[in-house]
Design a protein around this nucleic acid. Structure first.
Length: 170
DNA sequence: ATCTTGATTGTTTTA
DNA sequence: TAAAACAATCAAGAT
């Protein structure tokens, strides 16, 4: 897969000879790569029937709101415990030992989040309705994801990938 | 390098 | 209405 291109005499003078303009170019390349990764991921998620990033997540229940605070406390008293399951167990145990009065503030906050969630969902649904009218998008969605990825990869070649590849990882 | 797992309760969503 | 999915968390194992 790795097309070894200019591996001739020139090898490492890129960094020293880098001019400001080329730096910008490199930056663009890296940015483009990241953007492509994002697109690929989105395509993959779409293929898996995954969720849109715009879709609001379900509101945290009172127990989860409580957990948010409980986790920090638990981590302080148990700095060495790294398992999420431990916090879950301890949290659940304590939650059941709490009276309704003690849970009240968490439930209040949970109720507030729920309201916000409903609001977000409304906006989300409305936006979806708007986009639904676009025939192009409908066609785009019905077309196989693999094809979309293919197209994006082609575009990638068009914009860059004309010099050597030395995208340092570590 | 990215993705899944695990453990809990409450709410949302689905069949 | 009952059952299933999923909300946060994050280290660690799996792929």
């Amino acid at each position: 897969m790795k097309a070894s291109k200019g591996k001739g005499p020139v090898r490492k003078d890129k960094k020293e000879v880098l001019k400001p303009v080329e730096e910008i170019k490199v930056g663009k390349r890296k940015a483009a790569i990241e953007a492509d990764k994002s697109r690929r991921k989105l395509a993959k998620n779409a293929k898996l029937g995954k969720k849109d990033p715009n879709k609001p997540k379900r509101p945290a229940s009172a127990f989860f709101v409580f957990l948010e605070e409980f986790r920090t406390v638990y981590k302080k008293e148990h700095p060495n415990v790294k398992a999420v399951s431990a916090v879950g167990k301890a949290g659940g145990e304590k939650w059941k030992s709490m009276s309704t009065a003690e849970k009240a503030p968490y439930e209040a906050k949970a109720a507030k989040r729920k309201t916000e969630y409903e609001k977000l969902m409304k906006a989300y649904n409305n936006k979806e309705d708007d986009e639904e009218d676009d025939e192009e998008e409908v066609a785009e969605r019905s077309k196989p994801i693999a094809k979309i990825v293919e197209e994006e990869e082609s575009a990638e070649e068009d914009d860059e990938e004309d010099d050597d590849d030395d995208e340092d990882e570590d």
